[in-house]
Computed example of a mutant assay.
Amino acid sequence: MTFSRVALFHALAWIESLLALHSYHYFVLTHREQGYGGPWKYLTYLNMVLQLIYFSLCVGKDLVDYLKLRNVSNVMKNINDVAYAAVALPSTITVFVSFWAIYLIDREMIHPEELDEFIPQWANHMWHTAILVTIAESYFNNHKYPRRLVSLTVCSFFGLLYVAAIFWIHHEAGFWVYPFMDHLHGVWMVLFIVAELVFTWVCYFIGEAINSYARNTDIKVE
């Protein structure tokens, strides 16, 4: 893989991430009151922000490589590898799998038909399907995964931090970010938190398998 093609991919992925966020602000924030926490309480929005931050790091590293700043490049690669393995890729897989799984079962639970009045299908796919550009990153960048203990610790931290934010919003504003949580009490709520953490780990291992396959397969983007 030549440097120019990797840099071009990162630039295009950065633009896609920026346009996804812009379209979300245009189609959602201008039509619906977000309430306490604004869009930051939704995993879809958080994932797009994380995706933009990650590809900003990638573009920054490409620039550092172009300037031949080897020491800085090595540090940035280590940061990028951890960010990709423990945050960017698991988050993308979580959003993609959870959104479309619920959508196929009962779209009214996650994307009611009334939203079609002001959210075009291409925008919905940009927020929940085009994010798979993060998976494509495995085929453009040779990521060296950190130790699993490090990756899973960081991954778990972000997952539990999001759950804590959901509980904080309920405490402060009196509503659950996701309405189905109204029906969870006692042991069911505990099981939900455990299931959320386990699902986060599953998404991490899926990402790890994808990255391993990308590193070892002959199917490379040339």
Rank of each mutant, 00 (worst) to 15 (best):
N124A: 02
F205M: 10
L50N: 08
V49I: 14
L46N: 10
N78Q: 07
Y66F: 15
L132E: 01
H143V: 00
M48I: 06
K41M: 09
N80Y: 00
V177N: 00
E16N: 03
A209T: 11
I110P: 12
A209Q: 07
E172M: 12
D182N: 15
S56A: 07
G60S: 14
L197D: 01
G207A: 02
K61Q: 13
H31V: 00
C203T: 09
E208F: 12
W122I: 07
Y26A: 14
V64Y: 05
L52F: 13
V198K: 01
N71E: 15
A85S: 10
T44K: 01
V59H: 06
F192W: 01
F27T: 14
V221R: 01
L149P: 00
W100N: 07
I79N: 02
Y54H: 14
E172R: 12
A11M: 07
G38V: 11
E222F: 05
S17I: 02
I210F: 00
T44S: 04
A86C: 05
E196T: 15
L57M: 15
S91K: 03
M189E: 11
L160S: 04
E222H: 04
R107V: 04
L43G: 07
P146V: 00
G174K: 05
N216E: 15
I166N: 06
A214T: 02
D182W: 13
G174Q: 03
L152S: 04
N216H: 12
A13L: 00
F175S: 08
W100T: 04
H185Q: 12
R70K: 14
W168G: 04
H10P: 01
H25N: 06
I105D: 07
M126E: 04
D106W: 05
A101P: 03
S4Q: 08
A86T: 08
T94W: 08
V59E: 10
V87T: 09
Y178P: 11
V133M: 09
I93K: 00
L18W: 05
T2A: 08
I110A: 11
A209M: 05
T217S: 15
T153N: 00
L18S: 13
I166R: 02
G37L: 07
F118N: 05
I119N: 10
V163G: 09
Y145P: 00
F27M: 04
Y103Q: 10
K77M: 06
G60D: 11
N74R: 14
L104P: 08
L160A: 06
H185W: 08
C155Q: 07
C155K: 03
W188Y: 15
H183E: 14
W127G: 09
K61L: 15
C203L: 05
V49M: 13
M189R: 13
M109K: 15
W14H: 04
M126N: 02
D81Q: 04
E113S: 13
G207L: 00
D106N: 13
